[in-house]
Amino acid sequence: MAETKKWAMVIDLDRCTGCQACVVACQAENNIPINEEKDFLSRRAKQWIRIDRVWEGTWPNVKARFIPVLCQHCENAPCEPVCPVYATYHNSQGLNVQVYNRCVGTRYCANNCPYQVRFFNFHDPEWPDTFWNQLNPDVTVRSRGIMEKCTFCIQRIRRAERTIEGRDGGKVNDQSLKAGNYMPACVNACPTNTLTFGDINDPNSDVSRRARDPRHYKLLDHIGTSPSVIYLKKVDPNAPEEEAH
């Protein structure tokens, strides 16, 4: 196991059915307000993970393709240097972290995010009354005026680390963590095992193994952001080879 961890995710597009379970799980885990029709119409809906749908081919031979897109936790994240107050920065475990308390809401990071995975709280979040008791106590409810985005469920990682360190005297590795249920909510929810999460610096972890798949590619690689989310291309035996995105 490598000394420092670098969290990464592998998304196998061959397995994705576009069922949106990850979206719902994320919504519940991370205290994201419920997106109503008006939010979608005004383009202010918040989905830390979203399923982009791409149509391939011409009618009638059309196929729907799905790409789950979440914060790519780029090594070289364009959103980070533009924040004047260090509200978003890179931590030692390869996570692109958003510090809600520091954020003043310039929204520059969102402008500079090529993946459009940063969300702004245009209003204070609201839930139906009965839902308030259902919020996740581990996750901050974001007030209006600040940015938010996928954290790779950092609260779960931290909880798992604390549990393991408390129990075994501190051997935190892929195996022991797996027992601690540190997986992000979307990974847990995925019925087809599309998403894999783990430490990519550990060559034996699931995520490293799957990342070595020859189908792997990264979104918008030419911008040079070097994302931590790795996609595995959908291979359609009936279709000619084509560019990923």
Partner: peptide
Amino acid sequence: HTGRPWRLMYWVFPYDFSRGIWPD
């Protein structure tokens, strides 16, 4: 135009030296 204009202190006037976080 910022989301939280009352927090401008963090940005325009770097008063937050006790925490050691200066503007970037």
